[in-house]
């Protein structure tokens, strides 16, 4: 497939920095502004998280961001509005990350069609493993969207091969056992897993979960990662801002810039 995601990986100078923003956190216009800050700071791809009431793969930071967004009126309709507005301003690939029920409730095919119409390039569904992936992958391909699947440290070699055969866009490597959230140390097993998966597929391999510092980015870069996904470390800054309103934009931008530098060997 000649997608925007393929293009970004083909033309990359270092691993892609993929920051996350929670749609509607703390409000729709502010999440649009945060998306701009991330793009301006050099994001190579942007992951837009559609909150779900019961996000079992997420730690407290993204849970709380999702609650803030839902309290401020975030819905799936507004998600696609946000994707459309971000798409109007940038040519980088946009991913939508959410949970199965958000997709199923809209209708699987309609969700992917709406995502494509709004300008999204990939969809990641946190609670859809290989066993349930077929209708999601089929709807994605029909809409011209990349179906992004996960490989984890607990994935058996047989499953891994099946996942690699079915996935599109890139492989989302679950870099830490557990839920999303910042971590001080990076798991050595995830480095080993990255190397193994790289050997087995021509798809780009992108670790996510717990990647919090430029040092983490440096380590995955050395191990051959094609990109890194950074969520909680950025989203935490939105929550920390509090009511004083002292702009999180710069701090978020600073972290993205520092990670970018790390990815280019700086």
């Amino acid at each position: 497939m000649n997608s925007r995601i393929d293009g970004a990986f083909r033309l990359r100078e270092g691993p892609l920095i993929v920051p996350c923003v929670v749609a509607g956190d703390p409000s729709f216009p502010e999440s649009l502004q945060i998306s701009r800050e991330l793009v301006d700071a050099g994001a190579d791809m942007l992951e837009i998280v559609m909150p779900f009431s019961d996000p079992v793969a997420d730690g407290p930071v993204i849970q709380q961001a999702g609650s803030r967004a839902r309290s401020a009126g975030m819905t799936t309709d507004r998600l696609f509005d946000l994707v459309r507005e971000v798409r109007a301003e940038t040519g980088i690939p946009l991913l939508v990350m959410t949970y199965a029920n958000i997709v199923i409730r809209r209708g699987i095919r309609k969700f992917y069609r709406d995502a494509a119409d709004a300008g999204a390039d990939g969809v990641v569904v946190a609670d859809v493993p290989l066993e349930e992936a077929d209708p999601f992958c089929a709807a994605a391909r029909m809409a011209g969207i990349d179906p992004i699947l996960f490989v984890s440290q607990t994935t058996s070699p047989e499953r891994r091969e099946q996942i690699l055969a079915k996935a599109g866009g890139f492989i989302y490597l679950v870099a830490a056992l557990g839920v999303t959230g910042t971590r001080e140390d990076l798991s050595p097993q995830s480095i080993d897993l990255l190397k193994v998966v790289k050997e087995r597929t021509s798809l780009p391999v992108v670790p996510g979960f717990g990647i919090s510092t430029p040092e983490h980015v440096r380590r995955y870069t050395h191990a051959g990662a094609d990109g890194v996904i950074v969520g909680s470390a950025l989203i935490r800054m939105i929550g920390d801002r509090g009511s004083s309103g002292s702009g999180p934009g710069n701090r978020i931008g600073d972290l993205v810039r520092a990670m970018k530098l790390a990815a280019r060997g700086g």
């Binding site: 079992v56 493993p129 290989l130 066993e131 996960f150 607990t154 994935t155 499953r159």
Partner: peptide, 22 residues
């Protein structure tokens, strides 16, 4: 069975599939 008619299934993060299969 994994399904009762259309109901049931295994909608969990990939990391848990190991435990469910076990």
């Amino acid at each position: 069975t994994a399904r009762f008619g259309e109901y049931g299934g295994q909608f969990v993060p990939e990391s848990l599939m190991y435990a469910l299969n076990e």
